[in-house]
Design a protein around this nucleic acid. Structure first.
Lengths: 332, 332
DNA sequence: TTCTTTATTGGAACCGGTTCCTTAATCAGC
DNA sequence: GCTGATTAAGGAACCGGTTCCAATAAAGAA
């Protein structure tokens, strides 16, 4: 592979002149022609590392994600990647396998790699996170979680949870199960539940809400939902993710419960597959790709030293489909 | 941020000694202690670029993928990332949005970034690909596609297609529809179809197979499947991906066709959600994560100059579930 | 015609590491 | 006590770019 020195020698000029040519300094038309020709012929491409060494930064944005096999993550990454490409950055992905220690480790490793900025799709923000973020001298953007000391982009899970809770309560459901995940994931495990709880609590009258917990896995959700139908026999099950809802629908099917006649089910996320379910699933659509775009734009600005809002909310909307039925009192 | 020179000065030794300490050269116990202390205090971490500049390579493996919102891709990436981490590499992801030009571009860009190796999840291998792969002087591993001149890891789509075709034919189906995608994706669009076609052709007797085409999108698949039911009214629909099968099931539901009593449906991929469908979907499971592991191991070996088989097949197996029924002649 | 000014260009230093070479010091063997 | 081997450490060169500074030449001003 050719270096800038080779090009310079072949073109009969100095390294600095070639560098100037490449970076738009003052070079005569004549020399420009010569250098252009040589570069054309040799297919020369500057070594990005040598450049970064001097510039002390790269055009790589690191993203740290808890898992790759998640609709939310891959959609968000798509958005990030798309926008980043437009802005002439590359995306380096670090998967942590939902391991908190590795999340911290990765922050330091990315810093060592001298990435220009870091987008952190965290599940939780601990003191160790804050310490790491402070120590490395690199802009960090939090996506999906929020902390006052860090630039954050959140999905407003609480309001969304409230919206779906309100919707279900307004349809006359009195016995509502909430199928969620552990509180280690603040956005999904805490915020969504909290918003939902708030909504149903406003219908104090005679609504009974019960909270159940499972993992992010569909099959675990199916199993838990199966038990839940026996224990509680709710008229509606509000699930904290679409995958859980898919599991719940499976369980209902196995218990010979008809959706939505016997039990209404809702999801959370807006995965494409929810439209294909039978019946199609009422859910909250979160605009992950759009959020990814925003995240990329924000981190790019931060890298350039420009300012962005400390906290940004992404959009969501309710998608009303077939899996929810109206319940009037006399039917109960 | 401190440099090695700072550390050396503080510890009262030469840069080279610190470097030797870090890389396990001969350093006296006494100096080791001194340097260790200083590094501890300052939180010094070597600049990865300066290291790469000298070493002329990085510990980053670039992966080029057509799309992120695909089960196959994200599973494969998971596998790659997991194994790569064990081997002390990082994964740089470049998404091409199914744009062939960008696939080529990305090969060059990654080369400029001096990644140690490239894993290419291509949809097709053109001359431009081969040219790019040759020009950059970096090991490349093809995943999901195969070419004689490039190290390849393939999913043996043809054999798998044959297996599912055989299975359906043996269950007595006589009118079989194959719902596939365009031939621009060689593995999915060509190989799977070819294997299937071979299998049914061996049941020359009275099997009628018809081939239909759609995109990778579930909703497009649902629409196409809807038409197909009207045009052809098959007793079985073999789909080239699980997403297409999900679309087909939706279409069947809308047409009031019962699965599998009226029509059998099969998928391809083994996505988790197929187990949750009602009825659950018979499909071919491809071991994407495992393939990712293998891909990572192979590229690491290639980077180190070790040899690996030019062509490796990943495993697959048939998962027999509820969506396929036996057809005996008198029922038709 | 001579002095400035301006446009190009070359040379050298630097970014932060690694590595080769040399020297100094310690130690064993005779 | 002297010689050769071995270990520890420093110094300098190098990786492949960028950038600052000085030098030269050409052009414009006086």
């Amino acid at each position: 592979m050719k270096t800038i020195a080779d090009i310079a020698k072949i073109a009969g000029v100095a390294k600095s002149t070639v560098s100037r040519y490449l970076n738009g300094g003052s070079v005569s038309e004549e020399t420009k022609k010569k250098i252009e020709l040589v570069i054309e012929e040799t297919g020369y491409a500057p070594n990005a590392f040598a450049q970064s060494l001097k510039a002390k930064k790269t055009n790589i944005i690191g993203t740290i994600i808890p898992r790759l096999d998640s609709y939310a993550t891959s959609r968000t990454l798509m958005g990030i990647d798309e926008r980043l490409r437009e802005l002439n950055y590359h995306m380096l992905v670090s998967n942590t396998g939902q391991d908190l220690t590795r999340e911290i480790e990765n922050i330091y490793t990315l810093a060592k790699q001298k990435v220009a900025g870091i987008i952190l799709l965290a599940t939780e923000v601990t003191d160790a996170h804050l310490k790491a973020i402070q120590e490395i001298d690199i802009p960090v953007l939090l996506v999906g979680q929020q902390h006052d000391n860090v630039y954050s982009l959140v999905h407003d899970d609480e309001t969304a949870g409230y919206a779906i809770g309100k919707y279900i309560a307004q349809r006359g459901h009195k016995k509502i199960a909430f199928l969620g995940v552990g509180e280690y994931d603040v956005a999904v495990g805490v915020k969504r539940k909290k918003g939902f709880a708030q909504a149903v609590s406003e219908h104090t009258a005679d609504v009974e809400a019960r909270f159940f917990e499972t993992t992010f896995s569909m099959s675990d959700a199916a199993e838990r939902a199966g038990q839940l139908f026996d224990e509680f026999s709710p008229s509606a099950v509000v699930c904290a993710t679409d995958n859980l809802a898919i599991g719940a629908m499976k369980a209902a099917y196995q218990k010979k419960l008809r959706v939505p006649m016997d039990v209404s089910i809702t999801g959370f996320g807006g995965y494409e597959v929810t439209a294909m379910m039978n019946p199609s699933l009422t859910t909250v659509r979160i605009h992950f790709t759009e959020a990814g775009h925003t995240a990329a734009s924000h981190i790019a600005k931060l890298v350039k030293g420009e300012d962005v809002p400390k906290l940004t909310y992404s959009r969501f909307d309710l998608i009303l489909r077939e899996s929810v039925d109206i319940r009037t009192n006399h039917l109960l």
